[in-house]
């Protein structure tokens, strides 16, 4: 999302004009060095502010917010073991799990649809998005800023807008609504995230390595496959993971572009909520939450990269 140098320098100039501030500080302060340490001593980040209290305001807030985030999940999971349909506890039962696994054909068909779309759309999006990020960071060409803008807007526009514009588009060009249109829509909203994650990774990449590879006789293709691709792999993997979860999760956009026979899991859950809630949803919740937990655990290395992209 870099802008032209002109804009940047204008922004800096504006900043400088606003300068007269009340406080004047030295940019950084030296912490007292242990004896025998040469030069300025900087404590490792985590050890700074050693008086930082465990029960400070921000820590309490964090714990409360996490509790807020998990509370609904706990309620649903608890009631998945309830013998009766309602919210009054009548006894422990695994009935809803039995129903979920052995008596919910339609639900599993919807799940299969979701799965197929998530895998295909995230692979296509990861491939195209990574390629584009490499092209933009590696070379200079005129339409770069166009691609940067067009890849950013879909991330921030409300889903309703993207869904409706795609519905109108598919109708206008007479593409039938179904699995294919859902695949196209999901790839479209996944692309920008992959592009952003891989671009961020390339931001840290030292391009003089490429020159070194060239000087040592590597061809264009060898440079790409043996130097660039391995170093952006964490970005690519985070992008893929993000794309899969977003695709599995999406309801609003899919709602518009789906047709008969292409019900995805979120659409199925929606119809369950609207037309008669069955406690099978509670049981399904636990299964999905466990799945997400495994995913987050398996990819914990990438969580920080993913956080940086949202």
């Amino acid at each position: 999302m870099s802008t032209s140098p002109k804009v940047k320098s204008a922004a800096v100039a504006a900043k400088l004009k606003k300068q007269p501030k009340k406080m004047r500080l030295e940019p950084s302060r030296l912490v007292e060095a242990p004896k025998g340490t040469p030069g300025p001593y900087k404590l490792p980040k985590n050890q700074m502010f050693q008086d930082h209290r465990k029960f400070g305001f921000s820590n309490i807030m964090l714990v409360l917010v996490i509790a807020f985030l998990f509370m609904p999940l706990f309620v649903v999971v608890t009631y998945s073991f309830n013998a009766s349909r309602g919210m009054r506890w009548t006894g422990f039962s695994l009935e809803w799990y039995y129903k979920l696994f052995f008596d919910s054909k339609e639900l599993w068909r919807a799940f299969a649809n979701s799965f197929v779309i998530a895998i295909t759309s995230s692979i296509v999006a990861t491939f195209l998005g990574s390629l584009s990020a490499i092209g933009i960071k590696w070379y200079k060409f005129k339409s770069r800023s166009y691609i940067q803008v067009v890849s950013f807007l879909p991330m921030v526009l409300p889903e309703v807008i993207i869904g409706i514009s795609m519905l109108i588009f598919f109708t206008a060009v007479k593409i039938p609504l179904g699995m294919f249109s859902i695949f196209v829509a999901h790839t479209t909203f996944n692309l920008p995230f992959v592009f952003l994650l891989v671009s961020a990774r390339l931001e840290e990449f030292d391009f003089s390595v490429i020159e070194a590879a060239r000087d040592l006789g590597a061809t264009e293709r060898q440079t790409l496959m043996k130097v660039i691709v391995p170093s952006i792999m964490p970005g690519v993997m985070s992008g893929l993971l993000m794309a899969i979860t977003m695709s599995l999760e999406d309801f609003v956009i899919t709602f518009f572009v789906s047709g008969p026979g292409s019900t995805t899991l979120p659409l199925y859950v929606y119809s369950m909520i609207r037309y008669g809630v069955s406690p099978v949803i509670n049981a399904l919740s636990l299964v999905l939450i466990l799945g997400i937990m495994l995913l987050a655990l398996g990819f914990r290395r990438f969580l920080k990269t993913i956080a940086a992209s949202s």
Partner: peptide, 21 residues
């Protein structure tokens, strides 16, 4: 991060349904 991301990745309709419950 995992604690923030796990509910965030859980299906949004499930979460809304949980609030209805």
């Amino acid at each position: 991060l995992a604690l923030v991301i796990i509910p965030f990745w859980t299906n949004s309709l499930i979460r809304i349904y949980a609030w209805i419950a």
